[in-house]
Amino acid sequence: MNSRKELLQVRELETTFFTDDGAIPAVDHISFSLKEGEILGIVGESGCGKSVTSLSIMGLVPSPPGKITSGEILLDGKDLTKLSQKEMRKIRGQEIAMIFQEPMTSLNPLFTIGNQLTEAILIHHKSWSKKKASARAVEMMKLVGLPRAEELLKEYPHQLSGGMRQRVMIAMALVCDPKILIADEPTTALDVTIQAQILQLMKDLNVRLNTAVMLITHDLGVVAETCERVIVMYNGQIVEEGPVELIFKNPEHPYTKGLIHSVPDMRFKKQRLFSISGNVPKPGTVKQGCRFAARCEYAFDRCQQENPNLYQTAEQHKTRCFLKEGKEASLDDRTAIESK
């Protein structure tokens, strides 16, 4: 796993929204990387900066009021934050593609599926004929499991079900063979059986096409089923990062523990659902101390004063909590972990 190349590196990324209430850092100095062919999950509650992170990578942060204020996003050594609009357009769709939460509204209602799919192809393959692009569109639609692909080309989005539309979105995203697919809550708007199908499809395509996937979700179940590695975000910061099995088996950050604890257990029907007390503070409102301190049952004085660093607690495990300070994995520990 370690031998895989890091495709995308996000370094100290900060995206700020300049509103009437002042500058709000929606994404606050986050760093992570996405490796070739992996599926990385990003979890967190609404407003924790997941979507802004993905939009920052795509260069699609609504501006104004949003702006990437510092940090870099490296793709093959190129810093995406420094590219011109024209250069960025070549990245979008071709190198990094994105699918969105709402398949019902993400396709243009007034153009046929065929028109929208071939458009995605012809933007990046200007020399292709329409016929060649249509053939490629059909091929891709078959790959994502859409029946009667040729007929669908002539149909409009409203004639398709939600699941089919999301398949069209995936086909459209992957039609130019991007290296990275960012999926922003791709299954949230779908019902459960369709959700499972779409997730399975994304896993299959990840294996078959070797496309790295960045899966943004608030659903830990989705992460457990699909991802290899997971990043937990809270209030614009990464609070925990690690392989999925490790995070589920041994969550270290109190927030992650709370999240895992809140997943309903179907074996005990009458049990009251656990919830983390309090609400997510608005981004930018916690000026001092740990962002989670107000809701944390383990919080002590220091948590109110300083924001903890992201401590490396094991080979691939990082946690932003003072309880883990001084418990970083030593070299000996690491070899022990690896030998297991």
Binding site: R89, R92, G93, T105, S106, L107, L110, E119
Partner: peptide, 26 residues
């Protein structure tokens, strides 16, 4: 502000066509 305009941009489409094709028709 609609989602399909964002989709069109995410495809790498030029802003001119995003506006005059995708947005205007709607």
């Amino acid at each position: 502000r609609s989602d399909y305009v964002r989709t069109a941009r995410a495809k790498g489409q030029k802003m001119f066509w995003v506006v005059y094709k995708h947005a205007l028709k709607n």
